[in-house]
Structures are given as C-alpha cells and as structure tokens.
Nucleic acid binder design. Structure first.
Length: 263
DNA sequence: GGAGATGTTTCAAG
DNA sequence: GCTTGAAACATCTC
C-alpha cells in the first residue's frame, strides 16, 4: 500500500510520543529480516530510547540515541502502529518494540517489506538519497535529464523509479500523468517541453496534496482527484466524464483517461 | 479456484 | 556498460 504519503502517515504512528524507551524486543524471524542480524537487534535495542523517526520516499529510519538505526521499508502491505500493552502479537506481526506501556508494531501480511539494522553512527545509505521531490533540488533540469536518459521506457515506468522519484508509487504515477494529460505509455524522450512542464508541476502538486490528506490522518484526497475513481473497472474520469481504462503499462496496472491522455 | 494486488530485486536480452 | 522487461518473492482478497 504505502507510497510517499502513506509512509509519512506510518512514520508518525511510531513517532507519536517520542522518545520511547525500549524495554523489550520481540521478533518473528521471517523474510522481512533478510540480510539482517536479528540477534544483534534484539540484544542492542533494550534500554535505548527511540529518539528519531525519519522518512524519505518509501524509506524510513528510526534512530536510537544516534547509536543504532532501524531501517523500515513497508513493501506492498506493511504497516506500523502503536497499541497499549498488554499486546498479543498477531499472525503477521514480525517486530514488536515494547516500552513501559506501549507496543510499536510492524505488521506485513505479504512479507515484501524489509527491516534492516545498523548499529553505529549513521543509517547506511541515508546519506546518498535522491533529492526529495518537494525540495528545490528536484528541478526541471533533473526531470528533463532523467526522461532523456530513459528515452524508450514508458513514462509510467519512469515515474516509478525510486532513484529519481522517491516515494512515487503506482497510484501517484497514475494521478500525476492523468493531471498532466500525458498517456502513460509515452516514451520518456518523446515528451515535449510543454508536457515536461506539466509533468513537473503535477509531480509537486500530487506529492504536496497527498501529504496534506493521506499523510495527515489517512483521509482521502479530494473528489476531483483520479484517486477515488481508479481502483475498479468501470470508473469515470472526473474531468471528461468519460470512461477510465485500466491496463498493464510498464508492468503495472495503470488507470488513465483515454479522452484526456492520448498516445 | 484463479487472478490480481499502492514494491523491489534479480536476471537476461538487446 | 546501460537500458528495458519479465519473473520471482508470499499472502490475502475479490
């Protein structure tokens, strides 16, 4: 589920009430810990305080007094939440951090998520992240250069590339292209300067709008977004009032408005 | 029962 | 060496 704004929402679930002094760590060793020293994790965290909760795109890092860092990626179906103790972990709860009164839970029904652990000074990879899409460092030049480089890939697939568009996932890519009136199968290098301008503007707008709604309290974006109409076959385009179409483009289910987005 | 799902990684072909 | 697309991953829901 989680894209930029959903990740921000989940980050806040664990951030609520910071700092948290960790008293116990419960782990169910499953695929989400691939490549991670779970033994070291369970030995290190008890006694430390969770002091920082950071998100960047779809990545999260939780810092423990700058001595240890937990990396969390939610994959397709991961969730983070807090509950009161006592808490009996459910089937797909693979990590539970307990404080005196609360439990911080990582749940992932599909096991596509990932948890990493870095004892030491800094979370690995956190220093080489691509620019945040809402920052000035993500600009037209960066967008244009990337589209030019991926010249034959469908623009839908390009928007899903995290190395340039951190946080954009399937629904956000569809929303951006729909608003920019660009067909999702258009090759990256084929976009005109005018289209690139619209694409740039809508990337910023969708990121900001999603964070203001979903990112705050999981509330839906406004009715006039594609968001509320894209999930099932038979939807109607909120702008043209004509039928929406769903097909696989760039390897993913893609919803668009043929009346508005022409190949 | 079969298909599809808001993601990433890996592999191989061009 | 880079780009691109497909398959694999695991489980749940429609």
């Amino acid at each position: 589920m989680p894209e930029l704004a959903e990740v921000e929402y989940y980050r806040k679930q664990w951030a609520e009430g910071l700092p948290h002094r960790i008293r116990a760590v419960k782990i169910i060793p499953r695929r989400v810990f691939r490549g991670t020293d779970t033994e070291l994790l369970t030995q290190t965290l008890p006694g430390l305080r969770l002091t920082e909760a950071l998100a960047h795109g779809k990545q999260m890092t939780f810092g423990f007094q700058k001595k240890a860092w937990l990396g969390v990626h939610l994959g397709m179906a991961g969730r983070l939440f807090q509950v009161d103790l006592p808490y009996a972990p459910e089937k797909h709860d693979y990590l539970v951090l307990e404080t005196t009164r609360r439990a911080l839970v990582f749940r992932d029904t599909r096991l596509f998520g990932r948890i990493t652990f870095n004892p030491g000074a800094a979370p690995s990879g956190w220093d080489t992240l691509p620019p945040d899409l809402l920052s000035g460092a993500f600009d037209r030049a960066a967008l244009d250069a990337f589209l030019q480089r991926r010249k034959n890939a469908p623009v839908k697939a390009i928007l899903l590339m995290q190395e340039r568009f951190p946080g954009i996932g399937n629904w956000m890519a569809d929303e951006i292209l729909w608003r920019a009136a660009i067909h999702p199968a258009r090759p990256g290098a084929s976009l005109t300067p005018r289209e690139r301008g619209r694409l740039f503007k809508e990337i910023k707008a969708v990121c900001a709008g999603a964070l203001e709604t979903i990112g705050v309290d999981w509330r839906d974006p406004p009715e006039d977004w594609l968001f509320l109409h894209r999930w099932k076959d038979g939807g109607t385009c909120p702008r043209t009032k004509k039928p929406l179409v769903r097909e696989t483009i760039g390897g993913r289910t893609t919803c668009f408005s043929p009346a508005r987005q022409v190949l």
